[in-house]
Amino acid sequence: MTVMESSLSTEIMYRKPQGPWQLAARRFVRHRIGVVSSLILLFIVGLVILGPAWFISEDAAFRPDPMRINSPPSADHWLGTDEVGRDILARIIYGGRVSLLVGLLAMLVAITAGVLLGSLAGYFGGIVDSLIMRFTDVMLSIPGIFLIIALSVFMGPSMRTIILAIGFLNWMSVARVVRSLFLSLKEQDFVLAARCLGVKDGRIMWGHILPNAMAPVVVAATLTVGSAILTETAVSYLGLGIQPPTPSWGNMLKNAQDLIWTAPWVAIFPGAMIFFTTLCINFMGDALRDALDPRMQL
């Protein structure tokens, strides 16, 4: 860790030596909004996972009730009903499952690709590095939404498409960071030692170097989840999002637009969920960055 310059370091010098993760945890806790955000996020995730088992029926979220379309919030439907009479609270909970899942899986795709390409480039250098980095440059130069539109039109709009498209467009910054860390770490003594002992490349890369490069990856992963949720919303606005009848916060918000004047609650709640969730994720990511690697460029 190279974070010793900040003001905290003086404080720590007089204490018992601590591992980098403990240090990070202490820093994280100092970021109060980050902590609060994480708790809210935990609540949202819990609600979304447990909600259906606990108090929301699948019928409420999926079964259209033509006799009760666009009804305002009431005792029966806390957040009202939508344009085909489904309960908005139930749909927000089911939609949250989808939106968060899209965010998480897209993040996994992006991180996997980024770490893989970044570590290969950084570790092997030379022609491998040049090829991978030029490809990274190419992908960085094309506006993401342009490619997402093309991909969605190509593969047909579906959850799989969205996850792959978002993942496919977010790995570049991770790859760059991982590459630069690998470049510096691979010259360090413990790597040289491992190499002398005849440890295989793959094991050195992912067994020895990668754990030391995890901090920025964790931060990037967090922030990617947030941006993936927003991207899903933007893609929904263009009509290429998650397809019916599956709810997602993005397609709920898109569908609510026409009703913004006559039934604003249909728009307000999914919009608020997207906003607060992304906000909390970003705060959490910010706190993580402060804690793990304040100089990170994400």
Binding site: F62, R63, P64, P66, E83, V84, P157, L238, G239, L240, G241, Q243, P244, P245, K254, N255, D258
Partner: peptide, 16 residues
Amino acid sequence: TAGNQVRENLQVFFQQ
């Protein structure tokens, strides 16, 4: 056609 809300609403209803 994807993204046409009225059509989607009808689809969902008929699906049920």
